[in-house]
Write a protein that binds this DNA or RNA. Structure first.
Length: 558
DNA sequence: CGAACTTGCGCC
DNA sequence: AAAGGGCGCAAGTTCG
């Protein structure tokens, strides 16, 4: 059964039971309390149909209510509009309703920020519906979505995509709610160790000051401002060294006494600004780092975050992610995921078998690169990213001789992109069109470019679509893993001390659990990875094993 | 003055 | 001649 739910704006909710095809089964029901309504239905295992998980579910979690399944209408609308090449069209329920009824399509609101708490269908939103009943509108849009899903080329896969995307949104809200265990005291000590003690507001820590002073002196300008690339370039040029940029890989090639100082400064400065004390006080509270995940925030289906930079936690500060006493972090990452996904996508059984041996790059090296593993890896990544410079082109050619199906698959995706076409992930997530922005009713005209520029742009587009098919299909798999996992974990441990999913980053998950539950969690993880592979890719010889480590500290996992 | 863009780095 | 995908973030820089 499905149950549609619309918050009333005064803390209550309207609900209505639906059949699997979206047709209403009973009459609308008014509840004075949203969490009570949801908690009442949840034991019967419904799929909740609601506008936007990240609006509703955090409120439920705050009230202690967890749900198993949902259909997120906004995320689904985004997938469906993307499927027909209308990426960037407004995705709200009101917009979908307007398209359905031929009314004027309201633009989406600006992205929700952390400190606003908008309610869908509140006063501000009531207008776009033109007085229509919000529950009726939700029902109509949902039923229409089910119809449109049925009309896609591969409805079974698209249904799975919608379910996985929606389950991912549930997981995102749950992870934002529970947070990654984070020891602020350990983090602060770490910073002091690396940077020197924290200074008064605005002043850089001692070690940064010393480094920048020494680097500036070495470049012969005591007042040189290292944070300004332009100034640094000028200083090097005065020393007779012309640089294309101040990127660290460029600097590494230069023999000058200021270079090692500058490189060390850059690394420490990075940690200071991105993961320093300011980050700590903004994002870590009560022993947990609580980022705001944005499911579907990346066109490829990867998540984004809004603040906190949860998907870019610097390796050196992972030392502060420490399990609660008596608990452990079970860290699992899908090693070599993208080449394995490519094997499944392309039906390249030979590549799949290479992956089945464990270390895919090792097997690749033995098969096609005379045992040279580093070259095998570069060749594979070059094929995935479209790199042709240096040695890469030769390595891709070598790869292609032994694994033609896999390499041809990404080459084909690149060709489609270069000629202006769209590509899709395995489950049907579609890449955005080449032009920068779709506006409702037509393409945004772009200024005419020089012929040479358009060639470069087409090739860039080809690299994008080439990578999209693999990255987005890997995201399909990762979402299926997450969906399987969050359900499977509820059966482990004891009430009040269940394992909790605390982190997800593209191809890696962290489960926080009691030490005595770690073995069971590990088994469930392995099983979930297996299930995700089978559910998403069906009958394929490709394997998607997880590297799993149960550790007290995140930094010890790798 | 803030907005919008650029640079360079971190993660995958 | 060169040709590496996706992001977020913070500081610097430029623009209105």
């Amino acid at each position: 059964m499905r149950v549609a739910v619309v918050p009333t704006g005064e803390g209550g909710a309207w609900t209505r039971e639906l059949a699997e095809d979206g047709q209403p089964l009973g009459e609308p029901r008014l509840w004075t309390d949203l969490p009570v309504a949801v908690a009442a239905y949840e034991p019967s295992g419904p799929r909740w149909v609601w506008a936007h998980t990240m609006d509703i579910y955090p409120r439920l979690l705050a009230a202690g209510v967890r749900v198993e399944r949902c259909h997120d209408v906004e995320l689904t609308e985004t997938l469906l509009m993307g499927y027909v090449g209308r990426w960037g069209s407004p995705r709200s329920v009101a917009a979908a309703w307007a398209r359905l009824t031929g009314g004027p399509v309201p633009p989406d609101k600006a992205p929700r920020s952390r400190d606003t708490q908008p309610t869908l269908f509140d006063a501000e939103q009531a207008d776009p519906l033109g007085g229509a009943d919000p529950l009726e509108v939700l029902l109509a849009v949902h039923a229409d979505q089910l119809r449109r899903i049925g009309e896609t080329a591969l409805p079974g896969r698209f249904r799975l995509l919608v379910a996985a995307e929606s389950a991912g949104a549930l997981a995102a809200a749950e992870m934002g709610h529970v947070g990654l265990p984070w020891r602020a005291d350990v983090h602060s000590e770490l910073l002091t160790e690396m940077l020197g003690p924290r200074q008064a507001y605005g002043l850089p820590p001692r070690k940064l000051g010393e480094l920048s002073e020494r680097a500036a002196l070495a470049l012969g300008d005591r007042k040189l401002h290292l944070d300004s690339p332009a100034e640094v370039l000028k200083a090097f040029s005065r020393a007779g060294i012309r640089l294309s940029s101040t990127r660290s890989w460029v600097l590494k090639e230069v023999d000058h006494p200021a270079v090692p100082l500058l490189l060390e400064y850059k690394e420490l400065y990075r940690i200071y600004t991105a993961h320093g004390w300011a980050w700590l006080s903004a994002w870590v509270h009560d022993g947990r780092f609580r980022p705001e995940y944005v499911p579907g925030g990346v066109v490829s289906g990867r998540w984004a975050t809004r603040g906190g930079g949860a998907l870019q936690i610097h390796k050196r500060v992972r030392r502060a992610a420490i399990a609660d006493p008596g608990w452990v972090l079970v860290v699992a990452d899908a090693g070599q995921l993208e080449p394995r996904v490519l094997a499944a996508l392309s039906g390249d059984e030979k590549l799949a078998r290479a992956g089945a041996s464990g270390d895919l790059y090792r097997a690749l090296a033995d098969e096609a690169f005379g045992g040279d593993r580093p070259r095998a890896k570069i060749g594979m990544l070059a094929a995935l990213y479209g790199q042709t410079s240096g040695e890469a082109g030769v390595l891709v050619a070598a790869l292609r001789r032994k694994f033609p199906r896999a390499v041809d698959h990404v080459e084909k995706a690149a060709q489609i992109g270069e000629s202006g076409g769209l590509v899709r992930s395995w489950l049907g997530r579609t890449c955005p069109p080449a032009t920068s922005g779709w506006v409702e009713g037509g393409l945004d005209p772009e200024p005419v470019e020089e012929a040479s520029d358009s060639g470069a742009r087409n090739r860039a587009r080809g690299r994008f679509t080439r990578n999209f098919v693999v990255q987005a299909s890997a995201a399909d798999w990762a979402l299926a893993l997450l969906a399987t996992l969050r359900t499977a974990l509820t059966g482990i441990g004891v009430e009040g001390a269940r394992p909790e999913l605390v982190f997800f980053q593209h191809d890696e998950v962290i489960v926080h659990c009691r030490a005595e539950d770690a073995a069971e969690v590990t088994a469930v993880l392995e099983q979930a990875a297996e299930t995700a592979g089978r559910v998403v890719f069906g009958d394929t010889p490709a394997r998607f094993p997880l590297d799993i480590a149960a550790v007290e500290c995140y930094a010890d996992a790798k």
